[in-house]
């Protein structure tokens, strides 16, 4: 079986071949039979380029451009401090958020709680912070800074509530893991990380 990284490299290599005719497809299919569906799908996707390359050019709205540039600059040498100030969760929306949860092997609700600052920063095990930094391709400091958030009450709630809204306080990472529905394997991994760090 091709590993995830191999798979990506093989598909890139197929994509940048000068021709995507039957001969090229046959060559890749016989060499990488376990990737046949991916290769056939990519072959179809490459056919779509014909329409994309000739589309009438128009400027498209890109509301994330500023954040993306800040994040890009923060990844440069000597920018460790500014890297911490970048809101990582801003770039993980929709499918990207789901993909991050999958990469971390946790239910999305765990990530949501971390994003919303519902977890005590001191209770987050360093093993999890390290995995988060690897999955999000950021430094450990940046990962730690993004996971150490303050709990905020959404402004919209103030307009809907009869009493003054207040958050329920922060919980420990261990408690969150114990109360969240997930597979035994996921729970055991997260609790093992808590035990290793002797987290509360």
């Amino acid at each position: 079986m091709s590993s995830h990284i191999d798979r990506e490299a093989i598909l890139y290599a197929f994509a940048v071949e000068p021709a995507h005719d039957r001969e090229t497809l046959d060559r890749y299919l016989s060499k990488y039979p376990d990737l046949k569906e991916d290769l056939i799908d990519l072959s179809a996707e490459l056919r779509l380029n014909e329409t994309i390359e000739k589309q009438p050019p128009t400027a498209l709205p890109d509301p994330g451009a500023k954040t993306a540039w800040e994040e890009f600059v923060a990844c440069g040498p000597g920018n460790a401090t500014s890297a911490e100030s970048v809101d990582l969760f801003a770039r993980y929306q929709g499918m990207a958020f789901a993909a991050l949860a999958k990469a971390l092997n946790v239910p999305r609700s765990i990530l949501t709680a971390l994003r919303d600052g519902l977890v005590l920063p001191s209770s987050i095990p360093s093993g999890f912070v390290r995995r988060f930094s690897e999955a999000a391709s950021v430094s450990l400091d940046s990962a730690r800074a993004n996971l150490s958030r303050q709990c905020e009450v959404p402004t919209a709630l103030s307009f809907k509530s009869d009493t003054k809204p207040a958050h329920q306080g922060q919980t420990t990472f261990r408690d969150l893991v114990q109360r969240t529905p997930m597979t035994d394997e996921q729970r055991s991994l997260l609790l093992h990380e808590c035990d290793e760090d002797e987290c509360p």
Partner: peptide
């Protein structure tokens, strides 16, 4: 070095990302 693929053929390399994203979605 994966960005080198994009310097070889930008839209073709991007088709690979698109295909993966389409599969995930």
């Amino acid at each position: 070095d994966r960005l080198d693929f994009y310097e070889c053929r930008f839209n073709a390399a991007l088709a690979s990302l698109r295909a993966t994203a389409r599969r995930d979605v």
